[in-house]
Design a binder for these strands. Structure first.
Length: 361
DNA sequence: CAATCGTGGAA
DNA sequence: TTTCCAAGATT
């Protein structure tokens, strides 16, 4: 298998930014960026991130908000927080060197079984097999495996098989080739079997049953939420934004404050309640500015942005990690999730500013 | 183990 | 239009 894969990869591999100049830091960064993320989307972030944080020392020395800003729009923001925390650990405890052992890598935040094997093999030549979604799909088809990759026991079977198939020569190259095959040939739907270098050995291809492997689990129906957000504008045209708690969804990111609508509650009442709970201020909720539909992995939401003004009280950090009154043009300095970023973008071109909502200023 | 954690592209 | 799922980790 490795003998057929290597020459194919040598010729067919894509030109990706993290394949141009390989250092442990760059390999680490690329692997974190690529977790649950397509290479086409990760590529732009990789280059901008490296330009902003060329070394682990500069990453470690940066404020967390700057790191989140470089990550804005990519999702799974815990990756950015953990990358930053790991960089600080590497500088503080490893003399700025990325650990060169699987155990050392695994001990860093954000590095699990896959990423440890990927960095270990690609950066340090360690004989560790990677098992990602691509590898599972390729192996399931090659060997007609019916094991579902979701459970730990089945996961181990894929891991053991991949380890058995790993050549001693250039294990990193082999790992990369197997993933590349899954990404470009052995795709989830409509695999390009005619050009596959492993076609002759593929059980699923022999049975003409590639669509049956790997088996998949039904995805549960996701709930829907109606969420309100307040565009609280002060007399100088500044907007009130809040920072989400570390452990929450979109942890550490900024948002227009608000929250989930309760049953039987008007959106205006929802927004008033949420700002009282989160920031301890009384507001008056005004007209709708816009709404944004957004789909997360495990729920969908419609975010309703209402104009609002502060009636009583000063903001306090009751149920948030921070707050700020920010001029409209400075909003881009604060990392936001997609839905709030859409609202922010719609605010940007508004004239006049502040908007002429009766009673605003 | 099972749930949680984002976003976007492809079919 | 809807569904699937991507170089997974953490709790």
């Amino acid at each position: 298998m490795a003998r057929r894969l290597a020459p194919w990869f040598a010729v067919r591999q894509r030109d990706l930014p993290w394949r141009r100049e390989r250092t442990p830091y760059r390999i680490w960064l690329a692997e974190i960026l690529l977790q649950q993320t397509r290479s086409a989307q990760a590529a732009g972030y990789y280059e901008r991130f490296l330009e902003r944080f060329p070394t682990v020392q500069e990453l470690a020395g940066a404020p967390r908000q700057e790191v989140l800003r470089a990550w804005e729009g990519l999702g799974y923001y815990a990756r950015a927080r953990q990358l930053h925390a790991a960089a600080r650990l590497i500088v503080a405890r490893h003399a700025g060197e990325i650990p060169a052992t699987l155990a050392g890598l695994r001990a860093l935040p954000g590095i699990g079984p896959y990423t440890a094997a990927a960095i270990g093999s690609l950066a340090f030549g360690l004989p560790a097999a990677v098992v990602d979604g691509n590898v599972v799909r390729v192996l399931a088809r090659l060997f007609c495996l019916t094991a579902l990759p979701e459970t730990a026991a089945d996961r181990r079977r894929y891991q053991d098989l991949a380890q058995d198939l790993l050549p001693r020569r250039e294990p990193g190259r082999h790992n990369e080739a197997l993933m590349e095959l899954g990404a470009t040939v052995c795709t989830p739907r409509n695999p390009r079997c005619p050009v596959c270098p492993l076609r002759a050995a593929c059980g699923a291809y022999a049975r003409q049953a590639t669509a049956d492997f790997p088996r998949r689990r039904r995805r549960p129906v996701v709930p829907h939420m109606e969420v309100g957000a307040a565009l609280v504008v002060d007399s100088r045209g500044r907007l009130l934004i809040a920072q989400r708690a570390e452990q929450d969804l979109l942890g550490g990111m900024w948002e227009f404050p608000g929250g989930k609508q309760e049953p039987g509650e008007t959106m205006a009442a929802c927004i008033r309640r949420e700002l009282l709970e989160e920031l301890g201020i009384e507001i008056e909720a005004g007209p709708v500015f816009c709404h944004v539909d957004h789909a997360f992995t495990h729920f969908t939401m419609r975010l309703h942005a209402h104009w609002a003004r502060r009636v009583r009280g000063r903001p306090r950090m009751l149920d948030c990690a921070g707050f700020a009154w920010v001029p409209r043009k400075r909003l881009v300095d604060y990392p936001m999730g997609k839905a709030d970023a859409v609202i922010r973008a719609q605010l940007a071109p508004l004239t006049p500013w502040p908007p002429a909502w009766e009673g605003l200023s």
